[in-house]
Each structure stands twice: as structure tokens, then as C-alpha cells.
Simulated assay, not measured.
Amino acid sequence: MKLTVKPRLEAILSGLGWSQSELSRRSGVPQPSLSRFDSVERHYDWHVAAILKATGATYEELFEVKETEEGVE
């Protein structure tokens, strides 16, 4: 099995009507880190925890997780 994880921060922000600056203010995560969140493969644990706490989102809302069999996409 292979897991593919795709961040969905922009969708969360859009749903809340928040800017990255607003989330940065509420979460303490630097705005430049937020601007790259959906395009990077690795995230600091504290960034994820702070974003989840500030937005009230679940992990499943913040990240789209897909399972595939190895070698099949």
C-alpha cells in the first residue's frame, strides 16, 4: 500500500474567509510558511497542530489522504 497526502490549507482558508495573514496571527505559524504549505512535502508538527487548533479543522480536512496499491495510481 502507498499513501499519497495532499495538503488543502487554501481550501480551509477559503471556507473560513481567512487570509494567510489572519491564520498566521491566530496560529503563530509564520505567514511565509503558510504560503508554501500546500506545495511542500514536509511540515513541522507544530505548524500542523497550530493550524488545526486555530481553524478547528480535522486532519482529514487539512490533508487529502489516498491509499493505492504499490505501483498503481
Rank of each mutant, 00 (worst) to 15 (best):
E64M: 14
F63W: 12
K66H: 07
Q31G: 01
T55K: 07
E67A: 14
L9I: 04
A57F: 01
K66V: 12
H43T: 10
T68L: 02
V72R: 13
S14T: 15
H47F: 02
E61P: 00
R25F: 11
I12K: 05
P32H: 03
E60A: 13
P30H: 05
K53D: 14
K53E: 14
E61G: 00
L13P: 07
P30I: 00
E41S: 13
S24C: 04
K6S: 11
Q31S: 01
W46L: 11
A57I: 03
A50L: 05
P30Y: 04
V65D: 03
E64L: 15
L13H: 07
S33L: 05
R25D: 08
M1I: 10
E70H: 10
K6T: 15
L13K: 03
I51C: 00
P30C: 04
E22R: 15
G71T: 09
S24Y: 05
K53N: 10
L52C: 06
P30R: 06
R8H: 14
V40L: 03
L3H: 05
L62T: 01
S14L: 08
A54T: 05
T4E: 09
D38P: 06
H47K: 02
Q20A: 14
E22D: 11
H47P: 00
L13W: 01
E10I: 02
H47R: 02
I51V: 15
I12H: 07
E67K: 11
V29G: 01
E64G: 01
G56T: 13
S33H: 14
A11D: 14
D45K: 10
S39G: 09
S39Y: 01
S27P: 02
V5E: 08
E67F: 12
E70F: 12
L23V: 02
E69S: 10
L23I: 07
R25L: 06
I51M: 02
T68F: 10
S19N: 13
A57S: 11
L9C: 03
L16I: 10
S21L: 04
R25E: 11
A11N: 11
D38R: 00
F63C: 06
K6P: 01
V40Y: 00
S39R: 14
F37Y: 05
G28V: 10
A11C: 09
K6M: 08
I12C: 07
G71R: 09
V29N: 03
L23N: 01
S27D: 02
I12P: 07
P32N: 10
S33F: 08
I51T: 00
L34I: 01
V5G: 05
L34G: 00
K66R: 12
E70I: 12
D38M: 06
R42M: 08
A57C: 03
G17V: 09
D38S: 08
S19L: 06
V5T: 13
V40I: 15
G17A: 07
S19I: 09
L3M: 06
Q20E: 11
P32D: 04
S19F: 03
Y59M: 12
L16T: 08
R8E: 15
E60G: 15
K2S: 11
S21C: 09
L3S: 07
A49F: 04
T4C: 07
F37M: 00
W46Q: 09
S35F: 00
S24T: 03
S39D: 12
Y59R: 11
S27T: 09
K2T: 15
A50H: 00
V29Q: 03
A54Q: 04
A54G: 01
W46Y: 07
Q31A: 05
V40W: 03
H43N: 05
